[in-house]
């Protein structure tokens, strides 16, 4: 694509992209480290993740200020307009990913003294790997302005939903086996839910990228994979 006649405008838009890349990198790291803290029952790592969320929030604020200034100065049009609206939306999603990682780190801290059921942790590990690779794909799709890649991220969320559904069932079983497991299991269940929500934010990001690149909205016919809200265990 041609560059803007006004060089400083070009630089302002590039700055938005580099901030998104930076924010996305931080969010990805927070997510994996929050899980590491949980898996390794490492309270110090958990504390660090909790403290690290502020950095993501502050990039979001910077981005919001940049966007407001660009709108006031440049009155962006067409692809530029879609980019800056996309940046606002993506930064909101990344900020939420950061919050979810922080929440998981808090739970890691709460349950660090207790021993964790191995199969559940293995399941959560799969979820985190999938969620962070999806997030990375989405961020790469943003950097490359690749609508096709965004679309494949968008379709892939169902895998994460399926993993979540199976962890949900396993945890229910675990709780029924022994009521003393309920406290720990509830934390792990929320942890799994957090990762599943990261997938939903990644899906939002993919939708935003698709709109940014093509100017067309994705029609939301994606199958919703999280079936836990309609699941009931009968005693």
């Amino acid at each position: 694509m041609l560059e803007h006649t006004v060089k400083s405008y070009e630089e302002e838009l590039k700055l938005l992209d580099s901030k998104i890349a930076q924010m996305g990198g931080l969010a990805e790291r927070q997510l994996t480290e929050a899980f590491d803290a949980l898996e390794k029952r490492d309270p110090r790592l958990a504390e660090r993740v909790i403290a690290g969320d502020a950095a993501i929030d502050s990039i979001e604020h910077e981005l919001q200020e940049h966007v407001v200034t660009i709108i006031a100065k440049r009155q962006p049009m067409a692809i530029d307009l879609r980019q800056i609206m996309g940046v606002l939306s993506i930064s909101g999603d990344l900020e939420r990913v950061g919050d979810l990682a922080k929440n998981m780190a808090k739970r890691a801290l709460a349950i660090a003294p207790e021993s964790h059921p191995k199969p559940i942790i293995t399941g959560l590990n799969h979820m985190v790997e999938l969620a962070s690779s999806q997030l990375k794909d989405a961020l790469d799709a943003y950097a490359a302005r690749d609508a096709e890649r965004a679309l494949s991220v968008w379709h892939a969320d169902s895998k994460l939903d399926n993993l979540y559904n199976s962890i949900f069932r396993e945890l229910l079983t675990h709780m029924m086996e022994d009521p003393r497991n309920i406290g720990l299991s509830t934390h792990l269940l929320f942890g799994a839910k957090n990762i599943e929500r990261v997938g939903d934010h990644t899906t939002n990001i993919a939708e935003t990228i698709h709109f940014l690149v093509t100017g067309r909205k994705l029609i939301d016919d994606r199958p919703k994979g999280d079936r836990t809200s309609s699941t009931l265990i009968k005693g």
Binding site: L2, H4, T5, M77, A78, I79, D80, R82, G215, R216
Partner: peptide, 19 residues
Amino acid sequence: IFTNPSDQRTQDYITGRFG
């Protein structure tokens, strides 16, 4: 035209990219 023009020349003009 101002959010999603079809032609690249339109896009380049309205976004201030004209060569």
